[in-house]
Simulated assay, not measured.
Amino acid sequence: MKRICVDSSSPVRLDKYLMNQLPQLGLGRLNKALRENKIKLNGKKQPLSTRVQTGDEICLYIPDSWLEEPDSLRFVYRDEQVWLVNKPAGLPVDAPEGDSLLARARKAAEGTSAQPRLCHRLDTGTSGLVLLACTDRAETLLTDLIRRRELQKEYLCVTFGRPDPAAGVLGGYLSKDAQRGVVRIVPRPGPTAKPVETRYKTLAVSGRLALLQVQLITGRTHQIRAHMASIGCPILGDSKYGNNAANRELHFRYQALCAWRLYFPKLSQPELAGVSGQTFELPMPWYCGQVQRGELQ
């Protein structure tokens, strides 16, 4: 969420003021944000023709990516060995051609000795923290941390439906259908079914929706999305495992799922001294605040 305190020598239209302050938005995105109830003037939805004046407060509940310059990389942390970046929803981590997180990282590394490579992945529709190694040694160390489950990952998500109980640990086995690109949770192991474990806690509820904090204990393909769908609480905006009627009604194009927090253990390797024992956390996505305040139901 972006908060703007109006400072203007005379009253001016809301759309004109926002376009002057945030020219990268564009009128099309402003109109889209208004339709989706993501612009509030002094706490209320108002037409873009409304005049604002000094002392007014404008709150924009929009993705951070709308305010970025094209092809930019949003660094959370970086040194010569490790990069931690915030991926926007809708951007693939890698792609054979066209825009991707890895392509942006390689562009950012031009003229330096860094050779960024992905240590793990996020689905295209998921936002949040992605870890990249910039050297062979860092890649070996970081991927080993992930393999040993010493790197703890926490997510925030909004589900269509309230989990019962409000907190718990989901188990079972995840079966992957590679041809269809989907997974499902099954009760028994099998040739394609691997054990999965997901811990969740409800932070807030609003009407039909719940805001959850989720910790990955195992890390399988689409694990959180499939696990929440398996208990009747699919993630809002998830077109593969979710409720598409609700997604359209609430104007969610991508899943309301964010890789929010990353914990590094104490590490002895000098290459990882900068991240040793550190916790990195993003601001809550705009939709989390709307659920907490009861504005999204």
Results as ranks from 00 to 15, higher is better:
R29C: 03
R29H: 11
L30H: 13
L30D: 09
L30W: 11
L30A: 11
N31K: 13
N31S: 10
K32T: 14
R35W: 03
E36N: 14
E36M: 08
N37I: 01
K38E: 10
K38A: 12
K38D: 04
I39M: 03
I39T: 05
K40Y: 10
L41M: 10
L41P: 13
L41W: 00
N42P: 14
N42L: 09
G43D: 05
G43P: 14
K44Y: 08
K44C: 04
K44L: 00
K44T: 08
Q46N: 06
P47R: 02
P47D: 04
P47H: 06
L48Y: 04
L48A: 02
L48R: 01
S49A: 13
R51L: 01
V52H: 11
V52M: 09
Q53G: 10
Q53Y: 04
Q53M: 00
T54M: 01
T54S: 11
T54R: 03
G55Q: 07
G55I: 06
G55E: 04
G55H: 02
D56Q: 11
D56P: 12
D56A: 08
D56L: 05
E57P: 02
C59A: 10
L60Y: 00
I62E: 07
I62Y: 07
I62W: 08
I62G: 01
D64C: 09
D64F: 14
W66T: 05
W66K: 07
W66M: 09
E68D: 13
E68L: 04
E68K: 12
E69H: 15
P70I: 06
D71L: 03
S72E: 13
R74N: 14
R74I: 07
R74G: 01
F75K: 15
F75T: 15
V76K: 15
V76C: 13
Y77A: 10
Y77T: 15
R78S: 11
R78W: 10
D79C: 13
D79G: 10
E80P: 07
E80N: 12
E80V: 06
E80Y: 06
V82K: 04
V82P: 02
V82L: 02
W83V: 11
W83S: 12
L84N: 12
L84I: 15
V85L: 04
V85D: 07
K87I: 01
P88I: 08
A89H: 03
G90Q: 08
G90T: 06
V93Q: 03
V93N: 03
D94S: 09
D94H: 15
D94P: 01
A95C: 04
E97Y: 15
E97D: 14
G98F: 11
G98I: 05
G98Q: 02
S100F: 06
L101P: 08
L101I: 03
